[in-house]
Design a protein around this nucleic acid. Structure first.
Lengths: 334, 334
DNA sequence: TCGATATGTGAAAACGAATTCATACAAGGT
DNA sequence: ACCTTGTATGAATTCGTTTTCACATATCGA
């Protein structure tokens, strides 16, 4: 079923059918109605491949992200991106890089080959890759990574105040000995800012956080949370509260606490980060909630805007996290 | 950078370049090498849109699934599908139906329009939609849904023995009062078979399961697990063990147990299902593990085979689940 | 020496849709 | 009567590939 068939059926030229389809040019009322009728009757669905070739634009957007599992963070970004794309009538070609630089580059070429209108990079691996994508003339938006690139659109979370506030909540409840579990800060601004906010809050409260309270993991494996929590508990001066800078670590940390029969928050106070697993843990944790789906949606909007106007000024959209209180910080005597 | 440019640079015709690209037809050794050199130098990447139009095949496969969040089950299927696709050099166009029938149909048309080579339906919503997709001449494979359709390739899990075995493990540990929490059985074979296996095992052990031990939820919301577990605990005869037919429910169930300060397995034994959340809970649950990624991978293989040979006999691939013991079933006196 | 057959090459025609161009006939102003 | 301008339509070209077809030339057997 193609334009030619419709044209034949309606006794007009393909050009006229195309004009009806796009509501463009001059078409007499009678023909327009006739063509429309045939279109409906034969349930014509345009061939987007042919259309894409002709228009040099496919109405598809590439999305490169690490993987939707096991980190629900990525699944939620993907959901946000998809929802917005759907309501905008565009499609997303999703590719999982597994944080592999070579694969990421292959995907960029693949997307170029498929003539996508733009690429959304969620936590891209390599600065070079992003630059090469731009060099290929593809509009690009970066989510959750800064990379010191100025000529790109970006969506970031301001983690310093988010982390600061969360730590503040713990401090306000009377805690002084507050541990920290997070991914090593060299990874990206995500990790360093989360750490930074904690340090800042402690400092402002006049507390010098002891080195043995601060534990770094190499990856986002829940088991790292388990082991690091054990180190905290078995250290010579056990903290009364722990700020866990990713729900992924909280998963493992709570497993250890369960083993040790330590109750939250009676025996130890815990605050998570991300609000991905926090609501599914026992007990559901107070945590810092990030507008993850929102970021995904925004990224689609931005990329669509960028496609419309390639020369517009580059934007950095900064979003805020909010604290979700589920009562896992115990108020202790002052 | 297109074939024409390469041809000009190498002083040959586009046809010759194409022949080098596909290693087909006759090309002299000298020209082949020259063209290859130019190809490499200019880093030629073929335009798959043009290629797709010409070949009437895009090398893309559509994947329609409910959503990767909050149910990690779908995220893992997606991962398996993606991995296999990547190693096979094909791409997946992933679309989330949110189990909405109308949307699912829109997506089928969209995929037709984009000339995908096939469609993978993970938990499709509507039998009619699948049939319409087939009617459109698109190869189809169904994952995790039977729908009484014989002329389709399918991948299923045999849940009856899986469920039977899990229940058996609990029985073998000496339990007689075993509760069941699952989604209502009218949903699909997934739910009814899981329930069936439980009933069978109980019956074979000579136990008539009491109605008040069997609790059904309307959806896969963790909170349903919370509420149903409460009903079980507050019932007049509390079971000593509960077989929870989805980790999603186990999430909520464990939260209630935590509130009530009941320890697993000391105070109550629990077995989950799916092995999606089970390893992330406190405590990590014994559960029935499903080869989810495996199913995703298999679906890609099947759809690729089907594309190669449209007339081959239809297959139903049945995979097995396995019991993962994490010690959450307490051995009780006989 | 004359077909066959193998080898090598490019021009041209698809694939399905969008768009430019050419052509046509009105109605309106001068 | 003639030139605009507005309306209406279809033929032909284009998008970047692949593939068929036609046309070479070389090699081999009889």
């Amino acid at each position: 079923m193609q334009i030619k068939d419709i044209a034949k059926q309606a006794n007009v030229s393909p050009a006229t059918v195309s004009r009806v389809l796009h509501n463009s040019g001059y078409v007499s009322k009678e023909k327009r109605e006739l063509v429309q009728k045939v279109l409906d009757e034969l349930n014509y669905v345009p061939n987007k491949i042919a259309r894409g070739l002709k228009n040099q634009s496919t109405g598809m957007i590439g999305h490169i992200l690490p993987s939707p599992y096991p980190n629900p963070y990525m699944a939620r970004i993907s959901r946000g991106v998809d929802e917005e794309a759907y309501s905008r009538g565009t499609q997303i070609l999703t590719l999982y890089s597994y944080s592999d630089e070579k694969r990421e580059w292959e995907f960029i070429q693949e997307l170029k080959s498929r003539m996508v209108d733009g690429i959304i990079f969620t936590s891209p691996v390599s600065r070079e890759n992003v630059k090469k994508a731009i060099g290929l003339g593809i509009p690009v938006v970066m989510v959750e990574r800064s990379m010191n690139l100025q000529d790109v659109d970006r969506i970031l979370i301001d983690y310093v105040p988010a982390s600061y506030n969360a730590t503040r909540k713990i401090l306000d409840a009377g805690h002084k000995d507050i541990g920290y579990i997070g991914k090593q800060t060299s990874a990206s601004y995500v990790e360093s800012q989360r750490h930074e906010g904690y340090l800042q809050a402690m400092k402002d409260a006049g507390i010098e956080p002891k080195d043995q309270w601060i534990k770094f993991a190499k990856d986002y494996d829940p088991m790292s949370g388990y082991h690091l929590m054990r180190e905290l508990l078995d250290g010579e001066h056990m903290p009364t509260a722990v700020f866990i800078a990713s729900d992924m670590f909280a998963v493992g940390a709570l497993q250890l606490l369960y083993e040790r029969k330590l109750r939250v928050p009676d025996d130890i106070s815990i605050v998570g980060f991300d609000n991905t697993y926090a609501d599914k843990l026992s007990p559901p944790l107070s945590t810092v909630s990030i507008p993850i789906e929102e970021m995904g949606r925004a990224s689609v909007q931005i990329i669509i805007d960028r496609c419309k106007n390639v020369d517009a000024a580059f934007k950095t959209l900064t979003m805020n996290a909010t604290f979700v209180d589920r009562g896992t910080v115990k108020r202790i005597g002052i």
